[in-house]
Design a protein around this nucleic acid. Sequence first.
DNA 1: GTCTATATCAGGATAGAC
DNA 2: GTCTATCCTGATATAGAC
Lengths: 196, 196
Amino acid sequence: MARMISAEAQRPSRDALVEAAARLFREKGYERTTVRDLADAVGMQSGSLFYHFASKGEILYEVMRRGIDDLTMAVRLELKACSSPREELITMTRTHLRTLLSNTQASLASLLYEWRSLPDEQRDQVVTLRDQYESLCREVISQAMENGVVKQGDPRLMVRLWLGALNWTSQWYNAEGSLGIDDLAEEIVDLILVHD
Amino acid sequence: MARMISAEAQRPSRDALVEAAARLFREKGYERTTVRDLADAVGMQSGSLFYHFASKGEILYEVMRRGIDDLTMAVRLELKACSSPREELITMTRTHLRTLLSNTQASLASLLYEWRSLPDEQRDQVVTLRDQYESLCREVISQAMENGVVKQGDPRLMVRLWLGALNWTSQWYNAEGSLGIDDLAEEIVDLILVHD
DNA sequence: GTCTATATCAGGATAGAC
DNA sequence: GTCTATCCTGATATAGAC
């Protein structure tokens, strides 16, 4: 039981597949990634995928479900160690950016751009998870507003603007550049959230 | 020459095709829209498309090129009538949101999510146009910073956060809701840009 | 649980008549 | 400039052996 990164059951091939899929979906997009690409990435033949997943669409669903799940848990965990509203804002922002921009956790990117490819039922489930995450973040922002750390306004709108600003970083952030993710998080909080 | 909405040459079938494509690409995504879908939407047979465009990819390129072009021109035009930095910020935001969220101008949505489907060369061209648009907006924000209307900070970062916040509205804005686009624009500017 | 082989089909694109 | 007919490739998914 020790040394599990994620809270998933241990099914190595399946897990490797989901991770490879997350990366490939981010690089090429879901539709342009073939089941052969996925199989190649884990050293399998394409037919063998379908022992683990009933369809390609199910792989996408699993990628998204894990992505949002891991993010939510990571943020919840990190928030526990915070002792001020501003620290909460920075921590939350940093965790979101790290998860979104890290190469090992590419799942979130699919979430942003590929949701139209999900069947209705699974899309609804993902939307529910996404809404729960948004609520968690909104709570933190609401608290910070009550403490005068964030400018007064509609927290429902504020959290969406903040999320949009963060998610858009996937379009322009350059890991080779001089700006580190943690510094970026702090700058973002100071620029658009904190009220001085 | 009178009554041209856009500055394009008049090729009715071609134009109708681009407009239908913009809408379908937004609804279903580029890869999931077939050339038969496109043909149906304008009452043609699929073979006839290829008289107007060499490939499906060229239609996507044209959708994007027009989208960013029209947006840039619209913003430039509207800015001329402004008489204060804050008014410029609101006008720019309003024009961006209107263009992004209007049903008749669906082109921008493709720009956000489908750029991976473009061939390299055309992607470069679109990126250039997008950078020009970003520069235009950055100028306005820089000016507003110099005037103390926007909080001091890196305008390059600020414009990207602002763009992200705006573009993300396409994921949640509901035209049937009580919040109009113009009111939304004003709220956004006051929440994340204006420094009071 | 993975392999090989293959069924099946959808979608982009072309040819040639009108 | 549009239609009909069709080619052809590539992709998902299945069957059955090992």
